[in-house]
């Protein structure tokens, strides 16, 4: 840009003014190109901005709903992966389960951030947010369920007594075969 300007400054010899402030087509020799309508330029500035904003908020809310629904796909994907992983504890299934647990948690932590870009006084984000949270909670539940099927949740009696020390005995007895 700067370069061009410099050149212009140096060698300005002629100029064509393309601006044409006349509104009537008749005042001009040249007809308007087809498809060009002067009326569009005539629109009120305020209506224009309102319309623009409406569209944007529409778009925003649409997008917000879209984003809120996004974890659903994730959920299906996770479900499929879990089914693939099987119910035995090994590296693969543990990895999947923990990612299934981690994703919703991190998503839930960042709820505000996800919807920040769609923040608008006129956009009601409560619905998408609730959906987003619900879906992520669903994902979390799926992860916990998987964790349970892997037997990693302390839901059995065995998980609570496995390290209980033996009870002490009140009585004490000793002896045996006589020493020889």
């Amino acid at each position: 840009m700067d370069k061009g300007k410099g050149v212009m400054v140096g060698g300005r010899r002629w100029a064509v003014d393309f601006t044409d402030n006349s509104t009537s087509p008749s005042s001009r020799d040249i007809p308007d190109p087809p498809g060009f309508s002067r009326s569009s330029q005539d629109q009120d500035d305020s209506t224009l901005s309102r319309q623009k904003k409406d569209a944007e908020s529409n778009w925003k809310s649409q997008k917000a709903w879209e984003v809120a629904q996004a974890p659903f796909k994730n959920l299906l994907m996770m479900g499929f992966m879990m089914w693939m992983a099987g119910s035995t504890v090994h590296l693969f299934s543990i990895g999947i389960t923990f990612s299934a647990l981690w994703q919703p948690i991190s998503a839930l932590q960042g709820v505000g951030k996800v919807f920040e870009s769609y923040k608008d006084s006129r956009v009601d984000l409560l619905g998408p947010k609730l959906l987003f949270i619900a879906l992520n909670l669903g994902g979390l539940a799926l992860g916990v369920w998987k964790l349970n099927t892997l037997g990693l949740l302390p839901t059995h009696a065995s998980d609570w007594v496995f390290s209980l020390p033996p009870a002490q005995e009140v009585e004490h007895s000793g002896g045996g075969i006589l020493l020889r």
Partner: peptide, 17 residues
């Protein structure tokens, strides 16, 4: 020294020694 009184068997069941 015995560490625990419980023996966890298959299917998360527990038996007490």
């Amino acid at each position: 020294v015995v560490h625990t009184q419980a023996k966890v068997i298959a299917d998360q069941d527990v038996m007490f020694k």
